[in-house]
């Protein structure tokens, strides 16, 4: 079969509206799970990282630290597919929970997985912030948590922006394993199209699938750049250009 024929088959399949909807649905699911997974990941990761860098005087901190270490070891040590399958086919039946949307399971598992990676990224970010910033906050009588939340973590996040972007890109691509637990993501959508009408023609659908992933990743890269620039701007100048323009008019 030559390329023209393959293309013909693909176009004839796409003539059906249902497949176009399927692609958009898959795209939405992919982005949704990656975004929510990252948000959960950042929250968990920040908390875990804070425990990891906390001084270990108190017993409770030492216990939490061990728990966090075990958590990181488990989620970094096993493949995402295993975690998803385990969550969906082992833990859910074990707890006797029925009727949970597979997407929810996906989001939670992605969040937990990402949290393990983000915690290490965040720990690096926190250690990269000058120790004096923390000391100055403590010397002013602010507590450990306040000093972390108001001073150290915002600066840490700024430092780790590029790496966080990387994590998001990984998540977007990893969503392709969601089909294991019956979620229709982007990959599953194209697989369905390729196998439609008992006509197993993979070349064109999978090529387009790859291109869509590339475009998604490029968009994320661009977004991260923009966010980085916004951070950098607030570092140099406090006044927004608008405000300055106003002042000029006034004077």
């Amino acid at each position: 079969m030559n390329l023209a024929v393959k293309w013909q088959i693909f176009v004839s399949k796409m003539a059906s509206e249902e497949y176009i909807i399927l692609i958009f649905k898959g795209l939405k699911t992919t982005v949704k799970i990656a975004v929510f997974g990252l948000i959960i990941g950042i929250i968990i990761g920040t908390l875990v990282a804070t425990v990891k860098v906390a001084p270990k005087y108190k017993l409770i901190v030492r216990i939490l630290d061990k728990i966090c270490a075990a958590y990181t070891a488990f989620f970094r040590g096993t493949p995402m597919v295993v975690q998803l399958l385990f969550a969906y086919y082992v833990i859910l039946p074990l707890l006797g929970i029925k009727g949970v949307d597979a997407e929810i399971v996906g989001i939670i598992t992605f969040g937990l997985n990402s949290g393990a990676y983000v915690s290490e990224i965040m720990r690096g970010g926190i250690t990269s912030v000058d120790k004096g910033q923390f000391e100055a906050a403590r010397a002013l009588g602010l507590g450990y948590g306040t000093a972390m939340i108001k001073i150290v973590i915002p600066q840490a996040i700024k430092n780790i922006m590029p790496t966080l972007g990387n994590e998001f890109i990984t998540l977007i691509k990893e969503t392709s394993v969601l089909s294991f637990i019956t979620v229709t993501d982007l990959f599953k959508a194209f697989k369905t199209i390729a196998e439609a009408n008992r006509n197993y023609e993979y070349l064109i659908p999978y090529t387009i699938l790859g291109l869509i992933y590339i475009v998604l990743v490029l968009i994320i890269t661009l977004l991260v750049r923009i966010i980085e620039k916004i951070f950098a701007k607030s570092d140099r100048k406090a006044e927004s250009p608008k405000k300055k323009a106003k002042e000029k008019v006034n004077s």
Binding site: D130, Q133, A137, A139, L140, G141, I151, Q155, A238
Partner: peptide
């Protein structure tokens, strides 16, 4: 260690060699 050190630090001002102004705040 049992004393609430934060309460007392508020009344002990400290100035550092490296200034340590919060970089993320005006």
């Amino acid at each position: 260690m049992k004393v609430d050190i934060n309460k007392h630090r508020r009344k002990i001002g400290m100035v550092f060699q490296n200034f340590n102004l919060f970089n993320n705040k005006t």
